[in-house]
Nucleic acid binder design. Sequence first.
DNA 1: AAAACATTTGCGGGAACCCGCAACGGCTTT
DNA 2: AAAGCCGTTGCGGGTTCCCGCAAATGTTTT
Lengths: 238, 238
Amino acid sequence: MKVLIVEDDQFHATYLQEALAEALPEVTEIFHAADGAAGEEEARLGEIEAIVMDLQMKHRNGIEAARTIWAERPQSRILFWSNYADDAYLRGIAQVVPEESAYGYVLKTASRDRLKLALRAVLVEAQIIVDREIHRLQKRGTAPRSRLDDSEFDVLIDLALGLQDKSIAERRGMSLRTVQNRLLSLYDKLGVSSDLDEHLTLNKRVRALNRALATRTINIETLEAAQRDLKTWLAGRR
Amino acid sequence: MKVLIVEDDQFHATYLQEALAEALPEVTEIFHAADGAAGEEEARLGEIEAIVMDLQMKHRNGIEAARTIWAERPQSRILFWSNYADDAYLRGIAQVVPEESAYGYVLKTASRDRLKLALRAVLVEAQIIVDREIHRLQKRGTAPRSRLDDSEFDVLIDLALGLQDKSIAERRGMSLRTVQNRLLSLYDKLGVSSDLDEHLTLNKRVRALNRALATRTINIETLEAAQRDLKTWLAGRR
DNA sequence: AAAACATTTGCGGGAACCCGCAACGGCTTT
DNA sequence: AAAGCCGTTGCGGGTTCCCGCAAATGTTTT
Protein backbone atom coordinates (compact mmCIF):
# COMPACT_ATOMS: atom_id res chain seq x y z
CA MET A 1 0.00 0.00 0.00
CA LYS A 2 1.17 3.49 -0.86
CA VAL A 3 0.60 6.42 1.44
CA LEU A 4 1.13 10.11 0.83
CA ILE A 5 1.95 12.55 3.60
CA VAL A 6 1.20 16.21 2.92
CA GLU A 7 2.73 18.28 5.68
CA ASP A 8 4.93 21.35 5.61
CA ASP A 9 6.46 21.02 9.03
CA GLN A 10 9.47 18.76 8.90
CA PHE A 11 9.21 17.54 12.48
CA HIS A 12 5.63 16.60 12.21
CA ALA A 13 6.24 14.89 8.91
CA THR A 14 8.89 12.59 10.31
CA TYR A 15 6.83 11.88 13.39
CA LEU A 16 3.94 10.92 11.15
CA GLN A 17 6.19 8.75 9.09
CA GLU A 18 7.29 6.80 12.16
CA ALA A 19 3.78 6.40 13.48
CA LEU A 20 2.67 5.24 10.07
CA ALA A 21 5.38 2.60 9.88
CA GLU A 22 4.45 1.31 13.33
CA ALA A 23 0.71 1.31 12.84
CA LEU A 24 0.44 -0.03 9.32
CA PRO A 25 2.94 -2.74 8.41
CA GLU A 26 1.14 -3.16 5.08
CA VAL A 27 2.49 0.18 3.91
CA THR A 28 5.14 -0.34 1.27
CA GLU A 29 5.90 3.18 0.13
CA ILE A 30 5.60 6.55 1.80
CA PHE A 31 5.54 9.70 -0.31
CA HIS A 32 5.87 13.18 1.02
CA ALA A 33 4.76 16.60 -0.21
CA ALA A 34 5.37 19.90 1.54
CA ASP A 35 2.32 21.86 0.43
CA GLY A 36 -1.14 21.44 -1.02
CA ALA A 37 -0.25 21.89 -4.66
CA ALA A 38 2.64 19.42 -4.49
CA GLY A 39 0.32 17.03 -2.68
CA GLU A 40 -2.23 17.09 -5.50
CA GLU A 41 0.54 16.43 -8.00
CA GLU A 42 1.98 13.51 -6.05
CA ALA A 43 -1.41 11.92 -5.56
CA ARG A 44 -2.14 12.19 -9.27
CA LEU A 45 1.17 10.84 -10.47
CA GLY A 46 1.50 8.11 -7.89
CA GLU A 47 -2.20 7.18 -8.08
CA ILE A 48 -2.31 7.25 -4.34
CA GLU A 49 -5.54 6.76 -2.48
CA ALA A 50 -4.42 6.88 1.13
CA ILE A 51 -3.38 10.29 2.30
CA VAL A 52 -2.53 12.05 5.53
CA MET A 53 -3.01 15.77 5.15
CA ASP A 54 -2.06 18.74 7.25
CA LEU A 55 -4.68 21.47 7.13
CA GLN A 56 -2.89 24.76 7.48
CA MET A 57 -0.17 25.13 4.89
CA LYS A 58 1.30 28.16 3.26
CA HIS A 59 -0.03 28.53 -0.27
CA ARG A 60 -2.74 26.02 -0.76
CA ASN A 61 -4.44 24.63 2.27
CA GLY A 62 -5.44 21.07 2.97
CA ILE A 63 -9.11 21.43 2.20
CA GLU A 64 -8.52 22.84 -1.23
CA ALA A 65 -6.01 20.13 -2.00
CA ALA A 66 -8.50 17.55 -0.80
CA ARG A 67 -11.16 18.96 -3.07
CA THR A 68 -9.13 18.50 -6.23
CA ILE A 69 -7.84 15.12 -5.14
CA TRP A 70 -11.34 13.91 -4.43
CA ALA A 71 -12.54 15.34 -7.72
CA GLU A 72 -10.03 13.11 -9.50
CA ARG A 73 -10.33 10.04 -7.29
CA PRO A 74 -13.45 10.13 -5.15
CA GLN A 75 -12.56 6.93 -3.39
CA SER A 76 -9.39 8.35 -1.85
CA ARG A 77 -9.15 8.08 1.93
CA ILE A 78 -7.83 11.20 3.60
CA LEU A 79 -6.90 11.64 7.22
CA PHE A 80 -6.71 15.31 8.17
CA TRP A 81 -4.22 16.13 10.85
CA SER A 82 -4.58 19.54 12.36
CA ASN A 83 -3.44 21.85 15.11
CA TYR A 84 -6.83 23.30 15.78
CA ALA A 85 -10.27 22.07 16.67
CA ASP A 86 -11.99 24.66 14.51
CA ASP A 87 -15.52 23.98 13.48
CA ALA A 88 -14.70 25.93 10.34
CA TYR A 89 -12.41 23.15 9.14
CA LEU A 90 -14.95 20.44 9.71
CA ARG A 91 -17.54 22.41 7.84
CA GLY A 92 -15.14 22.96 4.97
CA ILE A 93 -14.36 19.26 4.80
CA ALA A 94 -18.01 18.27 4.98
CA GLN A 95 -18.66 20.40 1.92
CA VAL A 96 -16.11 18.65 -0.27
CA VAL A 97 -16.15 15.05 0.89
CA PRO A 98 -17.76 12.76 -1.68
CA GLU A 99 -20.23 10.05 -0.73
CA GLU A 100 -18.05 7.07 -1.44
CA SER A 101 -14.95 8.12 0.41
CA ALA A 102 -13.65 7.96 3.94
CA TYR A 103 -11.94 10.60 5.96
CA GLY A 104 -10.84 11.38 9.46
CA TYR A 105 -9.93 14.35 11.60
CA VAL A 106 -7.27 14.03 14.29
CA LEU A 107 -5.65 16.74 16.34
CA LYS A 108 -1.90 17.02 16.53
CA THR A 109 -2.20 16.98 20.28
CA ALA A 110 -3.75 13.52 20.20
CA SER A 111 -1.75 10.67 21.66
CA ARG A 112 0.36 8.49 19.42
CA ASP A 113 -2.03 5.61 20.02
CA ARG A 114 -5.01 7.60 18.96
CA LEU A 115 -3.21 8.74 15.83
CA LYS A 116 -2.31 5.15 14.99
CA LEU A 117 -5.89 4.09 15.54
CA ALA A 118 -7.13 6.79 13.21
CA LEU A 119 -4.56 5.87 10.58
CA ARG A 120 -5.80 2.31 10.53
CA ALA A 121 -9.46 3.20 10.69
CA VAL A 122 -9.36 5.67 7.82
CA LEU A 123 -6.61 4.51 5.49
CA VAL A 124 -7.16 0.78 5.76
CA GLU A 125 -10.69 0.23 6.97
CA ALA A 126 -12.15 3.25 5.14
CA GLN A 127 -14.10 4.36 8.18
CA ILE A 128 -15.02 7.91 9.11
CA ILE A 129 -13.58 9.09 12.38
CA VAL A 130 -13.61 12.52 13.95
CA ASP A 131 -11.78 13.60 17.07
CA ARG A 132 -14.35 14.16 19.80
CA GLU A 133 -12.44 17.19 21.01
CA ILE A 134 -13.95 19.17 18.18
CA HIS A 135 -17.49 18.78 19.30
CA ARG A 136 -16.98 20.30 22.69
CA LEU A 137 -15.08 23.50 22.21
CA GLN A 138 -16.79 25.29 25.00
CA LYS A 139 -13.67 27.13 26.15
CA ARG A 140 -14.68 30.34 27.91
CA GLY A 141 -18.28 29.86 26.94
CA THR A 142 -17.43 30.86 23.40
CA ALA A 143 -19.62 28.40 21.58
CA PRO A 144 -22.53 29.46 19.44
CA ARG A 145 -25.63 28.81 21.48
CA SER A 146 -26.88 26.54 18.78
CA ARG A 147 -25.37 25.28 15.59
CA LEU A 148 -25.83 27.32 12.45
CA ASP A 149 -27.65 25.64 9.61
CA ASP A 150 -26.29 25.76 6.09
CA SER A 151 -28.26 28.72 4.88
CA GLU A 152 -27.31 30.75 7.91
CA PHE A 153 -23.73 29.80 7.34
CA ASP A 154 -23.89 31.01 3.74
CA VAL A 155 -25.18 34.35 4.85
CA LEU A 156 -22.50 34.53 7.50
CA ILE A 157 -19.85 34.01 4.86
CA ASP A 158 -21.23 36.80 2.71
CA LEU A 159 -21.52 39.09 5.67
CA ALA A 160 -17.91 38.33 6.56
CA LEU A 161 -16.77 39.22 3.08
CA GLY A 162 -18.36 42.62 3.51
CA LEU A 163 -21.32 42.24 1.20
CA GLN A 164 -24.36 44.29 1.99
CA ASP A 165 -27.84 42.90 2.36
CA LYS A 166 -28.87 43.58 -1.20
CA SER A 167 -25.89 41.76 -2.67
CA ILE A 168 -26.35 38.80 -0.36
CA ALA A 169 -29.97 38.56 -1.45
CA GLU A 170 -28.94 38.59 -5.07
CA ARG A 171 -26.15 36.07 -4.63
CA ARG A 172 -28.16 33.61 -2.57
CA GLY A 173 -31.45 34.10 -4.39
CA MET A 174 -33.47 35.32 -1.43
CA SER A 175 -35.44 38.44 -0.83
CA LEU A 176 -33.92 41.31 1.06
CA ARG A 177 -36.10 40.70 4.07
CA THR A 178 -35.23 37.03 4.24
CA VAL A 179 -31.56 37.86 4.30
CA GLN A 180 -32.27 40.13 7.21
CA ASN A 181 -34.15 37.36 8.96
CA ARG A 182 -31.12 35.14 8.60
CA LEU A 183 -29.00 37.89 10.02
CA LEU A 184 -31.27 38.16 13.01
CA SER A 185 -30.97 34.49 13.81
CA LEU A 186 -27.24 34.71 13.24
CA TYR A 187 -26.97 37.54 15.72
CA ASP A 188 -28.93 35.47 18.16
CA LYS A 189 -26.99 32.24 17.74
CA LEU A 190 -23.62 33.90 17.79
CA GLY A 191 -24.51 35.73 20.97
CA VAL A 192 -23.91 39.14 19.48
CA SER A 193 -25.66 41.18 22.13
CA SER A 194 -25.46 38.88 25.10
CA ASP A 195 -21.99 39.36 26.49
CA LEU A 196 -20.17 42.52 27.55
CA ASP A 197 -22.05 45.39 29.07
CA GLU A 198 -25.75 45.36 28.25
CA HIS A 199 -25.97 49.11 28.07
CA LEU A 200 -23.37 49.14 25.34
CA THR A 201 -24.99 48.83 21.95
CA LEU A 202 -22.75 47.33 19.32
CA ASN A 203 -22.46 47.30 15.59
CA LYS A 204 -24.07 43.92 15.12
CA ARG A 205 -22.60 43.23 11.74
CA VAL A 206 -19.01 43.58 12.84
CA ARG A 207 -19.70 41.94 16.15
CA ALA A 208 -21.14 38.94 14.38
CA LEU A 209 -17.92 38.48 12.43
CA ASN A 210 -15.92 38.95 15.59
CA ARG A 211 -17.94 36.31 17.42
CA ALA A 212 -17.83 33.91 14.51
CA LEU A 213 -14.05 34.12 14.60
CA ALA A 214 -13.84 33.85 18.36
CA THR A 215 -16.01 30.74 18.38
CA ARG A 216 -13.98 29.24 15.55
CA THR A 217 -17.07 29.01 13.41
CA ILE A 218 -15.04 30.57 10.65
CA ASN A 219 -11.35 31.28 10.41
CA ILE A 220 -9.02 33.17 8.14
CA GLU A 221 -8.59 30.33 5.69
CA THR A 222 -12.36 30.18 5.37
CA LEU A 223 -12.43 33.84 4.51
CA GLU A 224 -9.70 33.56 1.93
CA ALA A 225 -11.38 30.63 0.25
CA ALA A 226 -14.75 32.37 0.34
CA GLN A 227 -13.26 35.41 -1.28
CA ARG A 228 -12.00 33.31 -4.17
CA ASP A 229 -15.46 31.81 -4.58
CA LEU A 230 -16.96 35.27 -4.61
CA LYS A 231 -14.56 36.37 -7.32
CA THR A 232 -15.51 33.54 -9.63
CA TRP A 233 -19.17 34.23 -8.95
CA LEU A 234 -18.69 37.86 -9.81
CA ALA A 235 -16.86 36.93 -12.99
CA GLY A 236 -19.64 34.62 -14.12
CA ARG A 237 -22.34 37.17 -13.47
CA ARG A 238 -21.75 39.74 -16.20
CA MET B 1 23.52 30.89 32.26
CA LYS B 2 19.94 29.72 32.68
CA VAL B 3 17.52 29.68 29.79
CA LEU B 4 13.77 29.08 29.79
CA ILE B 5 11.94 27.62 26.84
CA VAL B 6 8.20 28.28 26.67
CA GLU B 7 6.72 26.16 23.93
CA ASP B 8 3.74 23.85 23.84
CA ASP B 9 4.75 21.70 20.91
CA GLN B 10 6.98 18.89 22.07
CA PHE B 11 8.87 18.52 18.80
CA HIS B 12 9.69 22.16 18.53
CA ALA B 13 10.73 22.27 22.14
CA THR B 14 13.29 19.52 21.76
CA TYR B 15 14.56 21.01 18.51
CA LEU B 16 15.03 24.31 20.27
CA GLN B 17 16.79 22.62 23.11
CA GLU B 18 19.31 21.06 20.76
CA ALA B 19 19.91 24.27 18.85
CA LEU B 20 20.37 26.07 22.13
CA ALA B 21 22.95 23.60 23.33
CA GLU B 22 24.88 23.90 20.08
CA ALA B 23 24.71 27.66 19.81
CA LEU B 24 25.36 28.68 23.39
CA PRO B 25 27.87 26.54 25.28
CA GLU B 26 27.61 28.96 28.20
CA VAL B 27 24.14 27.69 28.95
CA THR B 28 24.16 25.64 32.13
CA GLU B 29 20.51 24.91 32.70
CA ILE B 30 17.52 24.71 30.42
CA PHE B 31 14.01 25.00 31.85
CA HIS B 32 10.86 24.24 30.00
CA ALA B 33 7.25 25.38 30.29
CA ALA B 34 4.35 24.29 28.11
CA ASP B 35 2.18 27.37 28.22
CA GLY B 36 2.26 31.06 29.02
CA ALA B 37 1.11 30.85 32.60
CA ALA B 38 3.62 28.14 33.48
CA GLY B 39 6.28 30.19 31.73
CA GLU B 40 5.63 33.20 33.92
CA GLU B 41 5.84 31.00 37.00
CA GLU B 42 9.11 29.37 35.95
CA ALA B 43 10.70 32.69 35.13
CA ARG B 44 9.70 34.09 38.48
CA LEU B 45 10.86 31.15 40.56
CA GLY B 46 14.04 30.50 38.64
CA GLU B 47 14.87 34.21 38.28
CA ILE B 48 15.52 33.60 34.63
CA GLU B 49 16.32 36.44 32.30
CA ALA B 50 16.93 34.64 29.02
CA ILE B 51 13.81 33.21 27.45
CA VAL B 52 12.72 31.68 24.19
CA MET B 53 8.99 32.01 23.79
CA ASP B 54 6.49 30.54 21.40
CA LEU B 55 3.75 32.99 20.47
CA GLN B 56 0.62 31.00 19.87
CA MET B 57 -0.20 28.79 22.82
CA LYS B 58 -3.47 27.50 24.12
CA HIS B 59 -4.53 29.46 27.17
CA ARG B 60 -2.19 32.34 27.61
CA ASN B 61 -0.28 33.50 24.61
CA GLY B 62 3.35 34.54 24.39
CA ILE B 63 2.78 38.27 24.33
CA GLU B 64 0.73 38.25 27.49
CA ALA B 65 3.27 36.09 29.24
CA ALA B 66 6.01 38.44 28.09
CA ARG B 67 4.14 41.41 29.47
CA THR B 68 4.02 40.05 32.99
CA ILE B 69 7.57 38.74 32.83
CA TRP B 70 8.83 42.11 31.69
CA ALA B 71 6.78 43.84 34.36
CA GLU B 72 8.64 41.84 36.97
CA ARG B 73 12.11 41.88 35.38
CA PRO B 74 12.38 44.50 32.67
CA GLN B 75 15.90 43.49 31.76
CA SER B 76 14.84 40.00 30.63
CA ARG B 77 15.83 39.06 27.10
CA ILE B 78 13.11 37.27 25.17
CA LEU B 79 13.39 35.65 21.78
CA PHE B 80 9.97 35.10 20.21
CA TRP B 81 9.73 32.09 17.99
CA SER B 82 6.68 31.96 15.83
CA ASN B 83 4.94 30.23 12.96
CA TYR B 84 3.61 33.36 11.38
CA ALA B 85 4.95 36.63 10.08
CA ASP B 86 1.97 38.60 11.32
CA ASP B 87 2.35 42.30 11.74
CA ALA B 88 -0.14 41.97 14.55
CA TYR B 89 2.37 40.10 16.69
CA LEU B 90 5.11 42.63 16.15
CA ARG B 91 2.75 45.42 17.07
CA GLY B 92 1.73 43.57 20.20
CA ILE B 93 5.33 43.04 21.20
CA ALA B 94 6.26 46.63 20.50
CA GLN B 95 3.58 47.73 22.93
CA VAL B 96 4.92 45.74 25.86
CA VAL B 97 8.67 45.75 25.42
CA PRO B 98 10.41 47.93 28.00
CA GLU B 99 13.22 50.32 27.10
CA GLU B 100 16.05 48.48 28.77
CA SER B 101 15.41 45.04 27.39
CA ALA B 102 16.30 43.09 24.30
CA TYR B 103 14.10 40.90 22.19
CA GLY B 104 14.01 39.10 18.89
CA TYR B 105 11.53 37.65 16.46
CA VAL B 106 12.39 34.54 14.46
CA LEU B 107 10.17 32.42 12.30
CA LYS B 108 9.98 28.69 12.81
CA THR B 109 10.75 28.27 9.15
CA ALA B 110 14.11 29.99 9.56
CA SER B 111 17.23 27.90 9.08
CA ARG B 112 18.94 26.39 12.06
CA ASP B 113 21.85 28.75 11.55
CA ARG B 114 19.66 31.78 11.60
CA LEU B 115 17.99 30.54 14.75
CA LYS B 116 21.34 30.02 16.41
CA LEU B 117 22.44 33.47 15.38
CA ALA B 118 19.31 34.99 16.87
CA LEU B 119 19.74 33.01 20.07
CA ARG B 120 23.21 34.43 20.55
CA ALA B 121 22.28 37.95 19.50
CA VAL B 122 19.32 38.26 21.83
CA LEU B 123 20.05 36.07 24.83
CA VAL B 124 23.75 36.75 25.16
CA GLU B 125 24.47 40.02 23.40
CA ALA B 126 21.15 41.63 24.31
CA GLN B 127 20.59 42.91 20.81
CA ILE B 128 17.30 43.45 19.06
CA ILE B 129 16.80 41.35 15.98
CA VAL B 130 13.73 40.89 13.81
CA ASP B 131 13.30 38.48 10.96
CA ARG B 132 13.25 40.44 7.72
CA GLU B 133 10.52 38.19 6.37
CA ILE B 134 8.02 40.12 8.42
CA HIS B 135 8.62 43.40 6.72
CA ARG B 136 7.79 42.19 3.29
CA LEU B 137 4.53 40.35 3.54
CA GLN B 138 3.28 41.51 0.21
CA LYS B 139 1.93 38.09 -0.73
CA ARG B 140 -0.95 38.47 -3.16
CA GLY B 141 -0.81 42.24 -2.82
CA THR B 142 -2.42 41.93 0.58
CA ALA B 143 -0.46 44.60 2.35
CA PRO B 144 -2.04 47.78 3.61
CA ARG B 145 -1.11 50.47 1.14
CA SER B 146 0.58 52.36 3.92
CA ARG B 147 1.26 51.55 7.52
CA LEU B 148 -1.37 52.46 10.07
CA ASP B 149 -0.33 54.89 12.76
CA ASP B 150 -1.11 54.19 16.38
CA SER B 151 -4.29 56.17 16.62
CA GLU B 152 -5.67 54.55 13.50
CA PHE B 153 -4.76 51.20 14.93
CA ASP B 154 -6.63 51.94 18.14
CA VAL B 155 -9.74 52.78 16.20
CA LEU B 156 -9.32 49.65 14.13
CA ILE B 157 -9.26 47.57 17.29
CA ASP B 158 -12.44 49.16 18.57
CA LEU B 159 -14.12 48.74 15.24
CA ALA B 160 -13.10 45.09 15.23
CA LEU B 161 -14.63 44.56 18.64
CA GLY B 162 -17.92 45.82 17.29
CA LEU B 163 -18.06 49.18 19.02
CA GLN B 164 -20.00 51.87 17.29
CA ASP B 165 -18.69 55.31 16.49
CA LYS B 166 -20.07 56.94 19.59
CA SER B 167 -18.48 54.40 21.92
CA ILE B 168 -15.15 54.62 20.17
CA ALA B 169 -15.22 58.38 20.54
CA GLU B 170 -15.91 58.05 24.23
CA ARG B 171 -13.28 55.40 24.82
CA ARG B 172 -10.54 57.15 22.91
CA GLY B 173 -11.44 60.66 23.90
CA MET B 174 -12.15 62.04 20.46
CA SER B 175 -15.15 63.65 18.90
CA LEU B 176 -17.54 61.61 16.84
CA ARG B 177 -16.43 63.24 13.65
CA THR B 178 -12.78 62.59 14.34
CA VAL B 179 -13.47 58.93 14.84
CA GLN B 180 -15.15 58.94 11.47
CA ASN B 181 -12.14 60.64 9.93
CA ARG B 182 -9.94 57.88 11.29
CA LEU B 183 -12.30 55.35 9.83
CA LEU B 184 -12.06 57.02 6.44
CA SER B 185 -8.29 56.80 6.41
CA LEU B 186 -8.52 53.22 7.66
CA TYR B 187 -10.81 52.31 4.78
CA ASP B 188 -8.35 53.91 2.43
CA LYS B 189 -5.21 52.30 3.83
CA LEU B 190 -6.74 48.87 4.12
CA GLY B 191 -7.94 49.06 0.54
CA VAL B 192 -11.55 48.52 1.46
CA SER B 193 -13.07 49.62 -1.81
CA SER B 194 -10.26 49.02 -4.23
CA ASP B 195 -10.35 45.32 -4.97
CA LEU B 196 -13.19 43.13 -6.20
CA ASP B 197 -15.76 44.51 -8.57
CA GLU B 198 -15.98 48.29 -8.49
CA HIS B 199 -19.70 48.29 -9.05
CA LEU B 200 -20.18 46.27 -5.93
CA THR B 201 -20.61 48.50 -2.92
CA LEU B 202 -19.59 46.88 0.32
CA ASN B 203 -20.28 47.28 3.98
CA LYS B 204 -17.11 49.18 4.74
CA ARG B 205 -17.03 48.40 8.42
CA VAL B 206 -17.06 44.65 8.01
CA ARG B 207 -14.83 44.81 4.98
CA ALA B 208 -12.27 46.76 6.96
CA LEU B 209 -12.11 44.00 9.54
CA ASN B 210 -11.90 41.42 6.81
CA ARG B 211 -9.00 43.23 5.13
CA ALA B 212 -7.21 43.81 8.42
CA LEU B 213 -7.31 40.07 9.03
CA ALA B 214 -6.29 39.19 5.49
CA THR B 215 -3.31 41.50 5.65
CA ARG B 216 -2.35 40.14 9.06
CA THR B 217 -2.62 43.58 10.54
CA ILE B 218 -4.64 42.01 13.30
CA ASN B 219 -5.30 38.38 14.13
CA ILE B 220 -7.54 36.40 16.40
CA GLU B 221 -5.23 36.61 19.38
CA THR B 222 -5.24 40.38 18.98
CA LEU B 223 -9.00 40.37 19.12
CA GLU B 224 -9.14 38.20 22.18
CA ALA B 225 -6.63 40.33 24.01
CA ALA B 226 -8.40 43.52 22.95
CA GLN B 227 -11.66 42.17 24.23
CA ARG B 228 -10.13 41.59 27.65
CA ASP B 229 -8.83 45.16 27.65
CA LEU B 230 -12.26 46.41 26.74
CA LYS B 231 -13.80 44.51 29.62
CA THR B 232 -11.50 46.06 32.19
CA TRP B 233 -12.15 49.48 30.68
CA LEU B 234 -15.87 48.92 30.93
CA ALA B 235 -15.51 47.80 34.52
CA GLY B 236 -13.53 50.87 35.50
CA ARG B 237 -15.96 53.27 33.85
CA ARG B 238 -18.97 53.06 36.10
C1' DA C 1 -59.63 18.90 4.25
C1' DA C 2 -58.99 21.82 8.05
C1' DA C 3 -56.15 23.62 11.39
C1' DA C 4 -51.87 24.76 13.37
C1' DC C 5 -47.41 26.19 12.65
C1' DA C 6 -43.20 27.94 10.29
C1' DT C 7 -41.01 30.59 6.69
C1' DT C 8 -40.90 34.22 3.36
C1' DT C 9 -41.81 38.69 1.93
C1' DG C 10 -43.24 43.74 1.86
C1' DC C 11 -43.74 48.08 4.36
C1' DG C 12 -42.24 51.55 7.31
C1' DG C 13 -39.61 54.04 10.65
C1' DG C 14 -35.89 55.09 13.81
C1' DA C 15 -30.93 54.65 14.40
C1' DA C 16 -26.34 54.30 12.72
C1' DC C 17 -23.17 55.08 9.14
C1' DC C 18 -20.60 57.43 5.34
C1' DC C 19 -18.89 61.57 3.96
C1' DG C 20 -18.85 66.53 1.62
C1' DC C 21 -18.48 71.16 3.22
C1' DA C 22 -16.87 74.66 5.98
C1' DA C 23 -15.28 76.78 10.24
C1' DC C 24 -11.89 76.68 13.86
C1' DG C 25 -7.90 75.83 16.23
C1' DG C 26 -2.64 74.95 16.57
C1' DC C 27 1.97 74.76 14.24
C1' DT C 28 5.33 75.81 10.90
C1' DT C 29 7.18 78.82 7.23
C1' DT C 30 8.46 83.26 5.43
C1' DA D 1 2.87 89.17 12.46
C1' DA D 2 0.92 87.20 8.26
C1' DA D 3 0.28 83.32 5.52
C1' DG D 4 -0.05 78.55 4.80
C1' DC D 5 -0.83 73.86 6.26
C1' DC D 6 -3.00 70.11 8.83
C1' DG D 7 -5.86 67.72 12.22
C1' DT D 8 -10.29 68.46 14.67
C1' DT D 9 -15.08 69.42 15.05
C1' DG D 10 -20.07 70.47 13.82
C1' DC D 11 -23.82 70.24 10.45
C1' DG D 12 -26.63 68.07 7.14
C1' DG D 13 -28.25 64.71 4.00
C1' DG D 14 -28.36 60.42 1.42
C1' DT D 15 -27.83 55.28 2.41
C1' DT D 16 -27.81 51.26 4.79
C1' DC D 17 -29.08 48.69 8.65
C1' DC D 18 -32.10 46.77 12.32
C1' DC D 19 -36.38 45.07 13.25
C1' DG D 20 -41.68 45.20 14.57
C1' DC D 21 -45.91 44.26 12.23
C1' DA D 22 -48.77 41.80 9.25
C1' DA D 23 -50.04 39.46 5.04
C1' DA D 24 -48.93 35.59 2.00
C1' DT D 25 -47.12 31.22 1.16
C1' DG D 26 -45.50 26.59 2.36
C1' DT D 27 -45.41 22.54 5.55
C1' DT D 28 -46.90 19.44 9.13
C1' DT D 29 -50.41 17.72 12.26
C1' DT D 30 -54.87 16.17 13.38
